Computed example of a mutant assay.
Amino acid sequence: MTDELHGKKVAILATDGVERVEVEQPRGALHAAGARTELVSLHPGEINARQSDLHPAGTFPVDTKVTDTSAEEYDALLLPGGTMNPDQLRTAPEAVRFVRDFMESGKPVAAICHGPWTLAEAGVLSGRRLTSWPSVRTDLRNAGAEVVDDELVVDGNLTTSRGPQDLPAFCRALVTEFA
């Protein structure tokens, strides 16, 4: 266990349909580095996780609703993927505002897989370089981003990876970039 992130509080914005491994592994890396995390969602209670989008994979307890918090309360933001999760988040004005506020604040933001969809909806990708799951790339380009097919991309305060296969590099970068 290290202490690079001691005293840091990280929001994980997710809702039903989140890819389980894209919450568990990054959260584990953040905790191992001393950070505290809170799962922020659209509704209270629990959210349903998935494995490979197709299979139910248990639940995660929600710490707070996005309407009950703000970017000011956190040091960094994690946007996990799964197809259904960001598809719902990008249609919720309060989630889009939360993401936009993070990006505009300059605080670190990390997104993996389909997670950047919410960034596109927030209108914060123009001129940014990033990567994502292949099926999201056209939407990201249409939002003004330069999209590449790399394991990991760090562009200023934004860190992105393509999907679960990239989690080892993504988790290492989270700790470095969030520190």
Rank of each mutant, 00 (worst) to 15 (best):
M1W: 00
T2A: 14
T2K: 02
D3N: 14
L5S: 01
L5P: 00
K9C: 01
K9Y: 00
A11S: 05
A11Y: 03
L13Q: 04
A14I: 06
G17D: 08
G17M: 12
G17A: 10
E19L: 09
E19A: 03
R20N: 07
V21L: 10
E22R: 10
E24M: 06
Q25Y: 08
P26S: 02
H31S: 06
A33F: 03
A33T: 04
T37R: 02
E38R: 14
L39A: 03
L39R: 06
V40L: 09
V40E: 07
G45K: 11
G45Y: 06
I47A: 04
N48M: 05
A49G: 12
L54K: 11
H55W: 03
A57P: 04
F60P: 02
F60M: 03
P61C: 13
T64L: 07
T67G: 07
E73F: 04
A76Y: 04
L79A: 05
L79E: 01
G82M: 02
T83W: 13
T83G: 10
P86L: 01
L89Y: 02
R90Y: 06
R90W: 07
P93C: 11
A95F: 04
V96F: 05
V96N: 12
R97E: 12
R100T: 12
R100D: 02
R100I: 05
M103Y: 10
M103P: 03
S105I: 09
G106A: 11
G106I: 12
K107E: 06
K107N: 09
V109D: 04
A111R: 01
I112Y: 06
H114R: 05
P116R: 02
E121G: 03
A122D: 04
A122T: 07
V124M: 11
L125F: 10
L130C: 09
S132R: 08
S132W: 05
S135W: 01
S135A: 15
V136I: 12
R137A: 14
T138L: 13
N142H: 15
A145V: 13
V148M: 11
D149E: 15
E151L: 13
E151T: 15
L152W: 11
G156E: 10
G156S: 12
L158G: 08
T159P: 05
R162K: 12
G163T: 04
P164V: 13
D166S: 12
L167W: 04
P168I: 06
F170I: 10
C171N: 14
R172M: 03
L174W: 07
L174N: 13
